[in-house]
Write a protein that binds this DNA or RNA. Structure first.
Length: 147
DNA sequence: GCCAACGTTGGC
DNA sequence: GCCAACGTTGGC
């Protein structure tokens, strides 16, 4: 999962202990959370749109997908008019908790340079999804880079 | 700040 | 259902 550290960083996650992953407003990303995120699943916590993009640590799913209430809140930056009209949020969120803080960032540059990771979704052309699938092998490789 | 790539919107 | 216009993402 991607996050802008200016908005919500790894440090914020550690401080908060449990974070509700609200604000996802892309159907494909939503479907990944809704269909594939199970309690106990591990996720890579990726810092994007910043000076040093890369994976800062790993987290785990502590609650499976449930409706994202910010879609119904007119005061939220994630407010969604279509959801308000139906009275039901069409967006979901999951809760995650920190697991492993990387001693060094697994930078995007390092990920690019690792031949074993060349087929990662993250590196594919035009890839912008904030939630992306990661294989077990890729996950292990990146975790090793962070040590 | 630039810009390529992509998703969404809305007129027809 | 097509597709142009627009908005967003995200690395650089």
């Amino acid at each position: 999962m991607k996050t802008e550290p200016d908005v919500f960083s790894w440090d914020d996650l550690e401080l908060k202990k449990i974070a509700s992953w609200d604000g996802v407003r892309n159907y494909q990303a939503r479907n990944f959370m809704r269909d594939d995120f199970k309690v106990g699943d591990k996720v890579l916590f990726y810092h994007s749109s910043c000076a040093d993009p890369g994976v800062a640590g790993t987290a785990e799913v502590v609650r499976e997908a449930y409706p994202d209430p910010t879609a119904l809140d007119p005061d939220s930056e994630y407010f969604d008019e279509a959801s308000r009209k139906t009275g039901v949020s069409r967006w979901v969120m999951v809760d995650v908790s920190p697991v492993n803080r990387f001693s060094k960032l697994a930078s995007l540059t390092m990920i690019r340079e690792n031949a074993k990771l060349k087929s990662m979704a993250l590196l594919q052309r035009g890839q912008r999804l904030s939630i992306q699938p990661v294989s077990a092998a890729e996950f292990a490789e990146i975790e090793a880079m962070g040590r």
